[in-house]
C-alpha cells in the first residue's frame, strides 16, 4: 500500500492472479507459451485525490477471504460492504467509463455459502468456491433446458428475480450449477413443489438467486465499492506483470549468481565452491557487493513487455505470452508497458 512510482504514473494497472501456463496457437500456426491471468474484478476501496492525499490514486482490493483483516483495514472493507481482500494495492486513476458497479456478494446473498438440497431426502452440500460460480434455482419444464444463458448475468441486481421469465406452474424444478464460462457443471433435478434450503436456515423458492451473479452497471464516477475488470486493458498491446517469485531458500553461488562449477574429477575440491572472494592484505577485506551464497527467490520481480494475446472481459481472463513471476495462484500486479505499445 505504499506510494510507488507506479502509483504516480498514468499507466493502466490492475491486480490479478496467475492461473497457470499453457500453450496456444498464433494465427500463423506457431506455438506460443502463454500464461493465463485472472485480472480483476478489483473492488475500489478508496479514491485518493490531490486535495485530500496529495496525489491521485485508487486503492483497490482483489482476492476474497473469509478471514478478518487488521482492524483499520477491516473498517475499510466494511465501509464498502465487501469481504476482506487479500491483495490491496494502489493503482493510477482510471476513467469512469471503465468502471462498473456489481452487486457485492454481501449485498446479494450474505451468507449463502453452503447449500442443502433437502427435497426427496437428497441432501447435497455444495461449497461455492468462486464468486463467479452461479448457483440459481431455475424452474423449468422437464424437457426444456433448465439452464439460464449468460444473458441472465445482465439481469437487474437485487437477486430476487431471475432474468428469464419462468412459468409459475412449472411441474418441476432444477438447480443448475454453472462455471465461469457458462457451461453447466452439475444439474440437480428437484421434485415438484420442492424448495431449496440454505445453510443459514432461510428457505429459497424457485427462481431465487442463490449466489453471486456478475451484473455490470455503468457508473458516472469512480467511488468506493465500484469494480474494475480486465476490460480496462482493452486495446493494450503489451503489459508488465510483477509478482513475488517462488522462494528457493538458501542457495549457493552457482544457482544464485550463475557461477561456473569447478571440475568434477582429477582430485578437484572445487566443485560448487564460490572461489576467491578478494585480494590479500590490501585491501584486507571483502569488497561490498561480493556475490555470495544466500537466500534466493521470494522477491518482487517484474516481467516486462509481455504481449497480450487475448482479453476476456466476461471471465476476467487475460492471456499473455511468456511467463510471469510467482507460483500458480500467486497475486500479480499488471500494468501497461512503458517501453513498447
Amino acid at each position: 500500500m505504499t506510494t510507488t512510482a507506479a502509483t504516480r504514473s498514468k499507466r493502466k494497472a490492475l491486480l490479478g492472479r496467475k492461473i497457470g501456463m499453457t500453450q496456444a496457437y498464433r494465427e500463423d500456426g506457431k506455438w506460443v507459451p502463454i500464461t493465463v491471468l485472472e485480472v480483476g474484478p478489483c473492488t475500489v476501496l478508496q479514491v485518493k485525490t490531490p486535495e485530500t492525499d496529495g496525489y491521485a490514486a485508487i486503492q483497490v482490493g482483489f482476492g476474497e477471504t473469509l478471514k478478518a483483516a487488521a482492524w483499520p483495514q477491516q473498517k475499510l472493507f466494511q465501509k464498502v460492504k465487501t469481504r476482506t481482500k487479500k491483495f490491496v494495492q494502489e493503482i493510477p486513476p482510471v476513467e469512469a467509463a471503465t468502471v462498473y458497479r456489481a452487486p457485492l456478494f454481501s449485498e446479494v446473498g450474505g451468507t449463502v455459502e453452503y447449500l442443502h438440497l433437502t427435497p426427496g431426502g437428497n441432501l447435497i452440500e455444495k461449497k461455492v468456491p468462486r464468486t463467479k460460480l452461479i448457483l440459481r434455482a431455475v424452474k423449468s419444464q422437464p424437457a426444456a433446458a433448465p439452464v439460464e444463458g449468460k444473458e441472465s448475468e445482465a439481469a437487474p441486481a437485487g437477486g430476487q428475480e431471475p432474468a428469464a421469465p419462468q412459468a409459475p406452474d412449472a411441474p418441476s424444478a432444477a438447480l443448475a450449477v454453472k462455471n465461469m464460462s457458462g457451461s453447466v457443471l452439475k444439474e440437480y433435478a428437484l421434485p415438484p413443489g420442492s424448495s431449496i434450503e440454505v445453510a443459514n436456515g432461510a428457505t429459497v423458492a424457485d427462481g431465487d438467486l442463490l449466489a453471486y451473479v456478475v451484473v455490470k452497471e455503468p457508473v458516472a464516477q469512480v467511488s468506493p465499492g465500484c469494480q474494475i475488470g480486465v476490460g480496462l486493458f482493452t486495446g493494450t498491446g503489451r503489459v508488465d506483470v510483477s509478482g513475488i517469485t517462488k522462494g528457493k531458500g538458501f542457495q549457493g553461488c552457482i544457482k544464485r549468481h550463475h557461477f561456473n562449477a569447478g571440475p568434477k574429477s582429477h582430485g578437484s575440491k572445487n566443485l560448487r565452491e564460490p572461489g576467491s572472494t578478494g585480494m590479500h592484505t590490501e585491501p584486507g577485506r571483502v569488497l561490498p557487493g561480493k556475490r555470495m551464497p544466500g537466500h534466493l527467490g521470494a522477491a518482487k520481480r517484474k516481467a516486462r513487455n509481455l504481449k497480450v494475446l487475448q482479453i476476456d472481459p466476461e471471465d476476467n481472463l487475460m492471456l499473455v505470452t511468456g511467463s510471469v513471476p510467482g507460483p500458480n495462484g500467486g497475486f500479480v500486479y499488471i500494468e501497461e508497458s512503458l517501453k513498447k505499445k
Partner: peptide, 13 residues
C-alpha cells in the same frame, strides 16, 4: 489440470 486452463485450451482447439 486447472479447470480455467482447460477452458482456455478448449477455445484454441
Amino acid at each position: 489440470m486447472n479447470s480455467i486452463i482447460a477452458e482456455v485450451e478448449k477455445k484454441f482447439q
